[in-house]
Structure formats: C-alpha cells, structure tokens
Design a protein around this nucleic acid. Structure first.
Lengths: 332, 332
DNA sequence: GTGAAAGCGCTAACAC
DNA sequence: GTGTTAGCGCTTTCAC
C-alpha cells in the first residue's frame, strides 16, 4: 500500500517530526539521523503525499492561469514563460481556457479560487470590472495579465501600444496615405480600446479623414480576419493597421492569396506576437509592431509569486511597451 | 476566517455528515433539511475546501499534461480540446512544458506523479521507453499522446501519417519530380520515424533516387526550418516535403521571402496543424497534409478520464489518420 | 432520516 | 538534537 511518513519514521527508528524536518530542512537534524532517514526513504520508495501536505500547510504550490485562447500563440508564449518562472520556484500551473467567453471565465474563477490554487493570473475577457471583482475572494492573490481595468485593486502586467500605433499612423500619413483602415480585436478589451484610441488620436493629429467606417472590429480569433479585411478593402483603404497578432498573420496570408502585394498595392502595419527571427521573411513587406510577449509572461510569473508570498506587497501596474519597426529598417 | 463545514452544520442545526451528504448528494436528505443546509451555506458564503477534499478522498480531480512545446499551436490546440473534455467532467489541467528536453520531462514526471494529479497525458520527448517507464509508478493512469513507443504498456492516441506521406511522394513522382527532399522533426520521435519511413518507402517504390542527402532533420522548433531548407535547396531539390507543421509554416514564409514561388519554382508538400479555413490562402500553392489535431486532444481527454475512473480498462492504442489534400483539389 | 466520531498524512508548537 | 501530539476540513462507517 501507500508508504507514509510513519513507515519511514518506524524504519529509521526516529519520530515523524524528524522525518518531516529532514525532508523539509526546517530544523537542525544531525548528519547521522539524516542518513538513517534518507536510507529508509530510499528503501521504502517513499514520496511525500502532495495533497496531505497542501491540506496541512494551506499552500498548494499551484498557480491558476485564466486564458482566453490557449491555441493562440500569443497566450501560448505567455504561458510558456510564466510556467518557466513558476516551475523554477516549485510551482505548478493550472490552465483554464475561456475562449473569450465571460460565463466560462466566471465558472473557472469560482472553481479555481475554491482552494485549488494559491494565486491567479487572469487575462480576462470580462467587460465589467465589477463582475470580475465580485468573483475574487477578498485578499486572494491575483495578477491581471495583458488585459487590465482602470481600478488599482489588483496588480497588473500589460503592454502599451499607444506610442507604436501613433507613430505607425503618422508615418503612413507622412508617406501620403490618406485612408488608413484599422482592424481591432474584441471591442470590450482594454487592449483594443487603447489601440483604437491611439489610432484615432494619430488620425486626428495628422489631419487624416476621420471616417468611422475605417474602424472595424473582429473577435480576436483567426476566422474573423478575412471579413474585416474585405470590408476595409471595399471602403477604399490605401493602408491598413491590424491590431492583433493572430488576425494579422491571417490577414497577410489572405492578402497574398488575393494577389494583393503588401507595400506595393497596400501599406500594411501588423502586430507580430511571435519571436521575430523565424518569421522575418513572412513580415518583410510590412511595418511591424512587436510586443514583448515573453517578458510579459515572465513578469506575470514573478508578480504572482510575489503576491502569493507577500500578500501585502504594494499593488503594482507594470506597463511594458511594444516596439515599432518600420518596414525595411532594423531598429525602432 | 475560513468558513468550514462545521460552521455550516452549526448554523443549520444539523451534523457535518448531513452537510457533506447534502452537498455531494451521497445519501438521502429530506427536503426540509436540504433547504436549511443550503440556506446556511449561502448565508456564510461557504465553499468546500478542495485540498481537504482531495486529501480525504485521494482524488484530485486534476490531470497533468506533459507537453514538449506549449507555444506550438499544434500542442496548444491539443491542450485546448483536451481541457474542454476534462473540464466538462470537473477536472482541471496542469501543464508542464519540457521544451523537448528529456531532463525537464523527467523532473516533471517525478513531481506530477507524487500525488498532484490523478492521471497523466504525456507527449513525450524521450528516446528511451525504459527511461519514461521507470518514472511512472505502477498502476498510475497514463495516456501517451501524439508520440508513442512500441510497448503496449500504456494507452495511446496518435496520428498515422504514413499513407498521406506515401501518397504525396507518389504524386510528386507522377508529376515528374525526381529529387524530392524531406525535412523531418527531431529524429528520435516516433512521429518523425514514421514519416521518414513513409518517405523512404515511397521513394523506393516510385523509383526515385534514394539519396540520403535529401533527408534533413530539424529540432521541431521554428528556428531550425530555414537552415534545413537551405541545405535542401543547395542539393538541387525539385520538390520538398516538410513533415512538421511549425517548420512548414516557417518554410513557406522563408521561401516566399527568397522569391521562390511554391508550385512554380518548387513543389511543396506541407504539414498543416491548424484549422484550415483561416489559412487556406496561405497554403493555396502547396499540397497539404492535415492532422486531426482537435480530435487527438478530445480522445486524449476521454481516454485519460476512462483510465482514471477505471484503471483496469483495457489498454487501447488509438491511431487516427491525417488527410492528404493535393494542391488545388478540395478533398482527399 | 440523521448524528458521532474516526482518521486520511502531514506539519509545527511545545516539551525535554 | 529529537520526540509527542494536536489538528488542518472533509468523508464515511457505524449506530440509532
């Protein structure tokens, strides 16, 4: 049957306390005793039971991550770097996929906060901060990732694209483009709001026509890109800004399929969520906005660990910035 | 402080046993009593503690998934569909990323089997079945996903690409292509072995030159595609088969960047791991081999649940098949 | 139809 | 430097 700490204690001729302390290095144990304990552990093939341990200590050594779309490489990469940081500290990651669905997010929040995890990373798809907030028990360690809300209640890590987008539009204007269309993600997301705001500001400042028809929204999933693009092409754009990585890569493929050459026929500014090297050939005819995806995940991991271990640490709002690479140039 | 089952029992004027049975519908409770219990639960905002429960019952309602590369959309999609199946049954998913590193896989196996999860999905990067096997406690529920080993010891779900690859090569030969190059993933993986075997068989059967220089291997990660491709181009291929989705999409981008038109300058057969619709324009000049990725994930989820709930269920080896779509045609 | 109470395996306060 | 033991919150057997 299952080998317990008492079995080990008995065989080693010591108390369970000593075995526990030996395993956890939590008080002094003489070399001799240690040796006896480890010997017994090996002999019995003992592994401490994780459930019993977390039950006893209240720590699960597990962080939950509520993600809108795991199959999106953007989130896949964030998860990867967060998991990296967490596993280095002995934490595990539980993934919950919401598919941009608020009810699924609600269900997952309820389940995960019920003693399953020590803390939560949330890339929320909620439109209403109140709804999110009401689902989080008081004092529960939370870090908002990528998508934020105005409130200072929870720590957050996000990327500001205002400057990148603003510059990209100005540069298009400087090249003589007049009708600059924009494709955004889900309209309710903080990321989309900021991006569209930057676009509007630049369009106004550069004296471009402020035509609401030039702004179209997708649902942040792949399939929504082609219809968005078709609408903008119908409306006679001479440049298009695609504000979401997944939709951007689909857009480029779609354009090429239609025989429309980026750069020659249409100026394109595209979000790139991936490691740029492998894809440089794919994006070589478009202006790129590159988000620091891995850094986002790393910081998210660090921040949630901090909050789990020091719940009273000051709430920080970390805002990273994306980099704008005009086509043909190397730097920003 | 924390609200426990005793608090609820006290307020409802019943025993903890009754509260437990009410919550879990595990023995008859009168309507009246039920009402009192639920009332107390609501009033106190009680949530049963998941750790205590799993400690007591030994069931964690959690499955672990050991993945080689979360940021690869292929695995992202498998995770997504597996999580879907699991969450419908109240299970959670813990992700461990190995980055195709055997030592990381070993560490994760040790951690996850130590009472953290009820069962394990493994897309192993191991070259040696013995090493994997020795890390899994006897009787632990395991399902091998995508990558298998000859042994019948564990249940598995995988995709056979033999037929697709064989046909694609024959078709290239039929079009008069002679020097067909192939790019494989990590040589040690069962998936790579089968794919290269299919290639060899077809090359031999079709009477094409059997030149070992036409077979190159990457590491199943993005960055390895361009050098592989350069080597094959140097060796004068008139057709190339890319046997891994991530490397395939990079290959296409790379070719286009070099001004080499698939179809015109070079025939291309490419693995496509994604939902085909959104990307059809990207792949419209290449022959495609499409794996049933979502189905793989769904079945993986079902199988591990089966094994967790009935450890003595017969060990099955589910082999799905990919579909070959010659360029320009709709069906297989 | 419901209650009393044992105990899952571990940690940590207290005792020596 | 090490042992004794209470008890974490829950499920479940046994009893009535």
């Amino acid at each position: 049957m299952k080998v317990t700490i008492s079995d080990v204690a008995r065989l080693a001729g010591v108390s369970t306390a000593t075995v526990s302390h030996t395993i956890n290095s939590t008080r002094y144990v003489s070399e001799d005793t240690k040796e006896k304990v480890y010997q017994a552990i090996r002999q019995l093939g003992y592994t401490p039971d994780a459930s019993a341990r977390s039950f006893r200590t209240g720590k699960k050594k597990t962080i939950g991550f509520i993600v809108p779309d795991i199959s999106n490489k953007f989130f896949g990469t964030i998860i990867e770097s967060a998991e990296n940081t967490l596993s280095a500290e002995g934490y595990h990651l539980i993934i919950a996929n919401t598919k941009e669905n608020m009810d699924r997010e609600e269900t997952n929040l309820r389940l995960l906060t019920a003693g399953l995890v020590d803390g939560l990373l949330i890339a929320s798809t909620m439109d209403d901060f109140g709804r999110l907030d009401s689902l989080i028990p008081a004092g529960f360690p939370v870090v908002l990732v990528d998508r934020t809300f105005g409130s200072q209640k929870y720590a957050s890590v996000s990327v500001s694209n205002f400057q990148s987008i603003y510059r990209s539009v100005c540069r298009l204007a400087g090249q003589g483009k007049r009708r600059v269309g924009v494709i955004g993600g889900l309209p309710r997301l903080s990321t989309t709001l900021e991006r569209i705001a930057a676009y509007r500001a630049a369009v106004a400042d550069c004296g471009l026509p402020q035509d609401e028809d030039l702004i179209v929204y997708g649902d942040s999933m792949e399939d929504s890109a082609p219809p968005c693009l078709d609408r903008l092409l119908d409306r006679g754009c001479d440049a298009i800004l695609v504000c979401q990585g997944l939709m951007a890569s689909v857009t480029i493929a779609y354009l090429r399929g239609k025989g429309i050459q980026p750069r020659q026929d249409l100026e394109l500014v595209s979000f790139v969520d991936y490691d740029t090297r492998a894809y440089e050939f794919y994006y070589n005819q478009v202006d790129r906005i590159v988000q620091p995806v891995e850094e986002l995940g790393n910081i998210a991991g660090e921040q949630i660990l901090l909050r789990v271990e020091q719940p009273d640490a000051p709430v920080v709002d970390r805002v990273l910035t994306s980099v704008y690479y005009p086509c043909g140039k190397g730097g920003a």
